[in-house]
Each structure stands twice: as structure tokens, then as C-alpha cells.
Computed example of a mutant assay.
Amino acid sequence: MSTRSRAVLLTAVAAAAALTLSACGKGGISGGGGDTNFVTGKNGIDTVPAGKRAAAPDLSGKTVDGKSLDVADYKGKVVVLNVWGSWCGPCREEAQYFAKVSKQYADKGVQFVGINTRDTSTTPALAFEKEHGVQYPSLYDPTGKLMLRFKKGTLNPQLIPSTLIVDRNGKVAARALEALDDTTLLKMLKPVLAEK
């Protein structure tokens, strides 16, 4: 095997390993180093005190149904961001709970937004939403560009599924790197919703 072929093979193996590590799974660790200002609770939810939160990055683009969406338009509401893929087993497990809680909190100042990633077309994403009763919008992000906008060392989503709670001021308040049921989702959401 030539040196060039070996280098290409090693690069491909490294890329596959990176994709595997960030793929659909349960649980995970925080990225980055330095003082991130967040605390991981016993329930696997990372939180940041109100005065030390980082602003959410620009999260805008086309939804899986072709409409334009900018998460910044929801400033003043608490936003639940859920990163998911139709191919992801844990995403299918949690979808019913997100659909349920999004309906319960629709008139309480809460907006749910999905970020669909790694689906090669919108067809499976739309089928997933229909099957699981997901009625809130989802940005279509097949290559993961939106996730890369989160600064390293912040509460950036790193696994699929990941869930982030953005406070009324557009700052990331909490994160979970695993599939959630309605009880755990509400444990993340309620404290941020209670903030004035």
C-alpha cells in the first residue's frame, strides 16, 4: 500500500470514528475546556446560572416543510431546541414526549423548535413528524452546520438527540445529551420558565 493510500485510509477511518462518537446515542460529555459556567446535575442535565449564560448562535434557515424560520424571532419566549434525526432510535423514543409537552405548554410562553440533522432529504423527516405527532417546526440541517455554530465549551449539542433550553433573553440555560421523557424534559423546562 502506498503512503498516499495509507494516508487516505487513515483519514477515512478517523472521519468514521468522529461520526460514530457524535452519532445517535444516550448520554455524553461536555465539549471544550476552561470555565464553562455550567453544572451537571445528577439527572444528566447541564445548567448555567442566569448571569453567566452564553447567547444562542444564529439558528435560522429552512424548515423540513420548506418555510423560513429564525429562532431569534422567539425572543421573549422560552425555546426548547431538540436536535434529532429520523434514523435515530432514541429520537423516536422521545418524540412522543416532546409532542405532548409542546402542546401542553404552547400557550404558556414556550416554543419548541426541532433541528433535523443527517437526514439526506426532508421526506423521512416529514414522515417522522407525522408519525409522532410533532406539530412544531424543525429546521432542516442535513450536514450539522447549525450545531457547529455553538461555541466550544458552551452548552453545545454534541450527540443526537440533544435538547437545549434557551431562556427568554436568547441565552442557553440548560442542555441534555440523551433521550428525554416528559418528566425529565419538564425538569429542564420548568426552572427556566419560572424565571422572571
Results as ranks from 00 to 15, higher is better:
S2H: 06
T3K: 10
R4Q: 14
S5T: 04
S5K: 01
R6H: 06
A7I: 14
L9Q: 02
L10H: 08
L10Y: 07
L10V: 07
T11Y: 07
T11S: 11
A16C: 15
A17P: 10
A17I: 15
L19T: 14
L21V: 13
L21N: 12
A23I: 05
G28Y: 06
G28E: 15
I29S: 10
I29L: 11
I29P: 03
S30F: 15
G32M: 08
G33L: 05
G34A: 14
G34N: 08
G34D: 15
D35M: 06
D35R: 07
T36P: 01
T36Q: 04
N37Y: 13
F38G: 01
V39A: 13
K42G: 10
N43G: 04
I45A: 04
D46H: 09
V48Q: 04
V48D: 04
V48N: 04
K52I: 15
R53A: 10
R53L: 07
L59F: 07
K62D: 11
V64H: 04
V64A: 09
D65N: 14
G66L: 15
L69C: 05
V71G: 02
V71C: 04
A72M: 05
A72W: 06
D73L: 12
N82D: 09
V83E: 00
W87V: 14
C88M: 08
P90H: 04
C91M: 06
R92T: 04
R92V: 01
E93F: 05
E94D: 03
Q96C: 02
Y97G: 11
Y97K: 10
A99C: 08
A99I: 11
K100W: 12
V101I: 11
S102V: 05
Q104Y: 03
A106M: 09
K108S: 03
Q111K: 09
Q111I: 10
V113I: 09
I115F: 03
I115M: 03
N116Q: 10
N116E: 06
R118I: 01
T122Q: 00
P124C: 15
L126T: 05
E129W: 02
E129G: 02
E129F: 02
K130Y: 15
E131V: 02
H132V: 05
G133Y: 00
Y140D: 07
T143C: 03
L146I: 10
L146N: 00
F150H: 03
K151M: 12
K151N: 09
T154Y: 03
L155M: 11
N156D: 13
I160Y: 04
I160M: 12
S162W: 06
D167H: 04
V172M: 10
A173M: 02
R175I: 08
R175K: 08
T183N: 11
T183G: 06
L186I: 13
L186Y: 08
K187E: 15
K187D: 11
L189P: 08
A194L: 13
A194T: 02
E195R: 07
